[in-house]
Amino acid sequence: MLRIAYIISVISILLFISCTPESIDSSKKAYTDFPQEQELKARTIRLDTALFRYPSRLHIRDGKAVVLDLHGTDYFFHTFSYPDFRYLSSFGRRGDAPQDMLSAENFRWNGAFLWTLDSNKSELTRFGFALSDDSLLRQEAVNLDKDILRALDFVMCEDSTFIIPDYSGDSRFCKVCRDGKLMHKFGVIPTVNEDALQNARPALAQAWRSFIDHNPRSGILAVATQLGEVLEIYNLKDSTHVVCMGPHGEPEFQVSGGYGIPTGIMGFSDVQVTDRAIYAVFHGRSFKDIARDARNGINHPDGGQFIYVFSLTGKPLKKYVLDHYICGISVDEQRGVIYATDVNEDEPILEYSIKTI
């Protein structure tokens, strides 16, 4: 028994070290503009079926494209062949049954499997392809530790552990083991708002809600704020942390009833770390302008009209100006294209041709 306990403790230590630095060396960078700017025009992907209500995420891998429909009526996820986007099947049934999903926040590929996050059930679910290779079957569900406050995004490390943003305000992330248990927390919110740090940490964490992505080959974890204009880059291999602050600065908010009410701008809505660069969808519209236009009966399209490109160390490289407003992206650097979702269109999948960085 002692030998077994010793082996388990050694494995736990290795897992701890493998994907999370013990100490983080942080630095801050400010950027005002991008050295290159380019306008892009989309090619609309014509689908053979009408499925979507709010297609917010798109991930592509191994000849498959999966789209998350945030407000899906019957299913949250739809699978297509890639790159021809021929419809294959839907999965992640919406409903109250034990194997149904109440909500869907994001999904991630992990080898031949695909994991989904249901924040309302506080559950991660693993799906695998059937023998026919055209449909995904539910294989495993992992209940998240009760100490994790409403998981809204996640990534996976090579050792099959999870990194989930921490919304308690005590740290930046939760490291979660394969069975859903909280291992430890790491990182801090890089704010200069000392009053919020002392007196309103949960509201501060809400305001700093971020979209994340991780590339296991480089060890880069990118973190893009939904409000303001902050991109954080954690290198989980060399324990460095870079905070890139744009002209709009950190998220602005007011505390009301314990909640953080946004007062600044809509920031990023998606981020992807490729082998060469970091791509992030940026909005930049102020809540003041949104409220003013709403009072005047002006309704703007939902989404952002810019894709910002940074190096893996946080250097601004390029700004793409789009002809559509988009929510999510999937970058295929080998083919030189970016696929995007436009929730304002009946045909919501777009293709942009780019020169690889």
Rank of each mutant, 00 (worst) to 15 (best):
G95E: 03
L102H: 11
F52G: 00
R46D: 15
S135H: 15
D134T: 14
Q99F: 11
F77V: 02
R61L: 06
R108K: 12
D96I: 06
Y82E: 03
L131Y: 05
Y54K: 14
G63K: 07
E39L: 10
V67Y: 01
F154P: 00
F77K: 02
L88D: 04
S26K: 12
V142E: 05
V67S: 02
D48L: 04
P35D: 06
W109H: 08
D147S: 14
A141S: 15
A151F: 01
A97E: 13
I148M: 03
F154S: 00
N106W: 07
T116Q: 01
K28S: 15
R138T: 06
S132D: 15
F91S: 01
D96K: 12
K29C: 09
G128E: 15
E123F: 05
V66G: 01
S89G: 03
D74N: 12
M156R: 12
Y31F: 15
D153W: 00
D48Y: 07
D153Y: 01
L149N: 04
G63Q: 08
L152F: 09
R86W: 04
M156N: 05
K64R: 13
A104G: 02
S135L: 11
R57F: 11
R61P: 02
Q139D: 15
L137T: 14
S119F: 04
Q99G: 06
G95I: 10
R150V: 10
A130G: 12
D96V: 05
L117S: 02
S119Y: 04
Q99L: 12
S26F: 08
L131C: 10
I24D: 07
L124V: 03
F76L: 10
W109C: 03
E37C: 10
G92Y: 00
I148N: 00
K146F: 07
P55T: 06
Q36M: 13
K121S: 09
K146T: 10
S90T: 08
P35A: 07
D96Q: 12
H59M: 11
R94A: 01
M156C: 10
F129S: 14
R57Y: 12
A65P: 05
L117E: 00
T116P: 01
Y87Q: 05
G63E: 09
M101D: 08
K121N: 10
L149I: 08
L70F: 14
R150C: 08
Y82T: 02
S56P: 00
Y31D: 07
V67I: 15
N106G: 05
R46H: 11
L137K: 09
L68E: 07
F113P: 00
T125D: 01
F107M: 09
D96E: 13
L51N: 04
D48N: 14
Y87D: 04
R53H: 14
M101P: 01
L137E: 15
V155Y: 00
R93Q: 12
S23I: 12
Q36F: 14
L136M: 15
S122D: 10
A65G: 06
A104M: 00
D48Q: 09
D134M: 08
Q36K: 12
G95C: 07
T49V: 15
A97W: 04
N143D: 13
R61M: 06
G128R: 11
L136H: 06
Q36S: 13
L47G: 07
L102A: 11
V155K: 00
G111V: 03
